[in-house]
């Protein structure tokens, strides 16, 4: 499988990365090189093989359903580019 310019622009939109016409053209070539490389996986017979879900056979750890952390609003917003009274500020979303 290979991607065309339109697909690259669509994927960039899904990934929320702005691309110029020139970027998209360069990326088309690069992505096709990588997709060409991974193509060889199709020759592997995987009939009856389950997809891997965990690399180590272990039971998922479950913690107690209790509050262990919190009251850290100031810490959580400390690194945000724009905040007000412990809220994250974003451009207007609803008119």
């Amino acid at each position: 499988m290979s991607v065309d310019l339109q697909t690259v622009k669509r994927v960039a939109r899904l990934a929320r990365i702005a691309v110029s016409e020139e970027d998209a053209e360069r990326m088309t070539g690069e992505l096709n090189a990588i997709l060409g490389f991974v193509e060889q996986l199709n020759e592997v017979d995987v009939s009856g093989v389950e997809p891997m879900t965990s690399v180590t056979p272990m039971e998922m750890k479950k913690r107690q359903d209790v509050v262990t952390d919190g009251n850290k609003a100031a810490d959580i917003v400390a690194n945000a580019p724009a905040t007000e009274e412990n809220f994250f500020l974003v451009p207007k979303v609803v008119e």
Binding site: V19, P81, P91
Partner: peptide
């Protein structure tokens, strides 16, 4: 995404801000 930490590049709306920040 330019909201919680790190770089933010302003945009005309929130999606534009995401896309420009990540680009």
């Amino acid at each position: 995404d330019g909201v919680r930490y790190g770089l933010r590049v302003p945009g005309k709306d929130i999606v534009d801000m995401y896309e420009k920040t990540r680009a």
